[in-house]
């Protein structure tokens, strides 16, 4: 099956398989990150992206990293994903990086979904097929997002959907960007 056919098939399946929710009545995304009272070293993260290339969290040290655990069927995950790309566009040149970790799905499913996004994500999309990394990070529900500072410590958490490029979130992140 060629890539376009695969993508169309995936889009159809993703639409059929998305968790049902009344579109006009969705809970609002929130605009605040939860500060971690006692920042702790980020757990290990080493996963392959959609092209099979391995990415490891330690290789991003020195950047402010937003680690987002998500899945294509999860309504708030789907809604917040474009805002992660807009955040990266806002702060990427100042040392912020976004890593999205899909929990429990395959390349075709994730590729089909991300192909519909506007703006399209330009950050690494990693696959946690057996959900071992999500469990290691003590994720209990999707989406859950962590912010890892330039020293590799978890400094913020966000359980549930966020509008990541909202000015209130950007204001929380700016002081933690690497010094230039």
């Amino acid at each position: 099956m060629n890539r376009i056919t695969s993508q169309l098939c995936g889009i159809t399946l993703a639409w059929l398989a998305a968790m049902p929710a009344a579109a006009e009545d969705l809970p609002p995304l929130t605009h605040v990150l939860t500060p971690i009272a006692a920042p702790y070293p980020a757990p290990a993260l080493k996963l392959a992206d959609l092209d099979g290339k391995l990415h490891e969290l330690v290789n991003f040290k020195g950047k402010l990293i937003v680690v987002n655990f998500w899945a294509t069927w999860c309504p708030p995950c789907r809604r917040e994903m474009p805002s992660l790309e807009r955040l990266r566009q806002k702060l990427g040149d100042k040392g912020l990086e976004v890593i999205a970790v899909d929990v429990g799905e395959d390349v075709e499913t994730v590729f089909a979904f991300t192909g519909q996004l506007d703006p399209a994500p330009t950050f690494p999309m990693l696959l946690d097929k057996n959900s071992a990394v999500a469990q290691h990070w003590k994720v209990r529900g999707l989406p859950t997002t962590f912010v890892v500072d330039t020293d590799g410590r978890v400094i913020y958490r966000a359980v549930g959907g966020r509008e990541f490029d909202h000015e209130a979130v950007v204001k929380q992140l700016r002081p933690h960007l690497p010094a230039r």
Binding site: V32, A71, G104, S131, R140, G141, G160, G161
Partner: peptide, 27 residues
């Protein structure tokens, strides 16, 4: 196993902590 993983993550969490502004949506 892949279907069981999908099931597990689609469910509303069995336990959770929410700071201000935090939430979950699940089955």
């Amino acid at each position: 196993e892949s279907a069981r993983i999908a099931f597990r993550w689609a469910q509303f969490p069995a336990e959770q902590e929410y700071e201000l502004g935090e939430w979950n949506q699940g089955m």
